[in-house]
Amino acid sequence: MILLHDVALQRLFGGLVVLLIVATVAGRLIARRARDERALTTVRNLNARINAWWVMCVIFAISVVIGPIGAVVLFALISFLALREFITLIPTRPADHRALLWSFFLITPLQYLLVGIHWYGLFSILIPVYAFLFLALRIAMSGDTTHFLERVSAIQWALMICVYSLSYAPALLGLGIRGHGTPGPTLLLFLVIVVQGSDVLQYIFGKLFGRRKIAPHVSPNKTIEGFVGGVAAATLLGALLWWATPFAIWQAGLQALIIALTGFVGGLVMSAIKRDRGVKDFGTIIAGHGGILDRVDSLTFAAPIFFHVTRFFYGG
């Protein structure tokens, strides 16, 4: 029952709930004022996002309250569903079947087991070393060499993004910080608030001030104004949350800047994949949000970088 003791965590959650209440009320007010069809569609989309946010916030809170196991299991589930969406989009062949079974039912749970027992030495190399080589071996053994390199790479990529990278988020729970013990839950919440906040802020700044497209061929909805405004606001948001973290105020701001930038790149890269595969979303599991992977795309880049930067400079 970590939430009962950790005052910083309580305040973070309290702030999040207040923010969601404000967003919900604002969404309802805007919906009442919307006149034409286009505005109404945007507002409906916005409100669907806010509703899904409530659900995600509650699930996240429950998993943190349960303790470290809760968060590890939650992210394992997210990874599994994200991997499912990713693999669906890549052109696998029947000969890959065994390699896929291993990926879903052995490598993914094993990665989270290692994260759960804080075995840094192994969870940080399981997929980039062992799974990387094993998958190539397993697919070679199947005897089907058509598009061999494309097939192997795509499955390796799926595991790296959906499982390995994402698992760095709950891995924060086992990260020791010099002079602060293991402030895991607050670090995790800091990461999630800044990365998702950055997404929302970029969306809002883009809708309000967006003029010039930043990557018209990859992600036509992203604008320079949305990017600059969103990243700046997310940096400020992170700096203002310094009191909950082991960081000084300028350090928290710098960390938030890194999170927002890597998160942006993550979204961009995942858009490139979707565009190549000819889809708009990875899935349909969350109303208003598309698939799981559409929600955590920025986290896949931000989590491992945030983990390693924090470990390098503050690890103890």
Partner: peptide, 10 residues
Amino acid sequence: KGHLLPVPIL
């Protein structure tokens, strides 16, 4: 064809 265990593709 020829496999027993399903892979959870959508």
